[in-house]
C-alpha cells in the first residue's frame, strides 16, 4: 500500500491556477501561500533554556515584544501571546523543524504541528489597505501597524492573525475551515477595486 497522501489546499476548489490566467488587472492582488509548515510553540519566555533552545534550533531569536515577528530565509516566527508563537516554515520541513526544536529545548514546552489546520492568504496591491480597513477595525497607519507587526484580531468577524509584510501587503493566517468564507469575503470586498489572483 502506498503511503503517499495527496495534500490539498483548503482553497483547492477555487482553482487559483485558472483564475490567475484570467484576472490580469486589479487594485488588489490575492495569493494563497498554500501548504506551508505551521508549528505552534508554547513555553515560558522567562526561561533561558527555552529561549536559547529556540534560538539554537531556528537561528532566530524568540520575539518577546508583543505583536512582533522575526524572519530569516528558512522560517518566520510570530508572537501570538506571551507564551505562544507561530513558526512558519517551507512546506514539508515542519517535521524536521519540530524534531530540531524538540532536540534543542529542555524543560516545559509544547510544539504542535498545525500545518493542516490553517492556511495563509497574502493580500497586496495599491487598494489592499482599503479592503483591510473594510474588514477590521484596526488602525492600518504605519505608526500603529509597522511592517513586521502581527496582530490577532477579528477580520470579517472571524478571528485571524494579520502580519504586515510591506506598506501595502499583508499575510492573513486563517483557519482551514474558514478559508472559503475568507475567499468569498475578499472577492466581495475587493470587487470595486478589481481582484487579481497571483500564484
Amino acid at each position: 500500500m502506498s503511503n503517499i497522501v495527496n495534500v490539498q489546499s483548503p482553497l483547492y476548489h477555487a482553482d487559483f491556477e485558472s483564475l490567475a490566467s484570467v484576472t490580469k488587472e486589479g487594485g488588489v492582488s490575492l495569493r494563497e501561500a498554500k501548504l506551508l509548515g505551521h508549528l505552534n510553540l508554547r513555553g515560558n519566555s522567562d526561561s533561558p533554556e527555552f529561549k536559547n533552545g529556540v534560538e539554537k534550533a531556528l537561528g532566530l531569536t524568540l520575539p518577546l515584544t508583543p505583536c512582533t515577528s522575526l524572519q530569516n530565509d528558512d522560517a518566520t516566527i510570530m508572537w501570538l501571546s506571551p507564551d505562544e508563537w507561530l513558526i512558519i516554515v517551507e512546506g514539508g520541513q515542519e517535521a524536521t523543524v519540530e524534531e530540531t526544536l524538540r532536540a534543542n529545548i529542555t524543560g516545559h514546552f509544547a510544539v504542535s504541528d498545525i500545518s493542516g489546520g490553517q492556511t495563509i492568504l497574502e493580500i497586496s496591491g495599491p487598494d489592499c489597505i482599503k479592503v483591510m480597513q473594510k474588514s477590521t477595525g484596526y488602525d492600518f497607519h504605519l505608526k500603529q501597524f509597522p511592517v513586521g507587526k502581527v496582530i490577532g484580531t477579528a477580520f470579517a468577524k472571524s478571528s485571524t492573525y494579520i502580519r504586515r509584510t510591506s506598506y501595502d501587503s499583508f499575510q492573513l493566517v486563517v483557519r482551514r475551515s474558514f478559508a472559503d468564507y475568507f475567499w468569498l469575503w475578499l472577492q466581495q470586498s475587493s470587487k470595486e477595486y478589481g481582484l487579481r489572483i497571483t500564484l
Binding site: 508583543p66 505583536c67 501571546s81 506571551p82 477595525g137 484596526y138 496582530i151 490577532g152 484580531t153 477579528a154
Partner: peptide
Amino acid sequence: MLHIYCPYCEEYREEEEF
C-alpha cells in the same frame, strides 16, 4: 464601542475582540 487596553498585547483594541 469600548476601547480596551490589553495588558498582554500592550495596546488598545476594540471591544469586538474581547
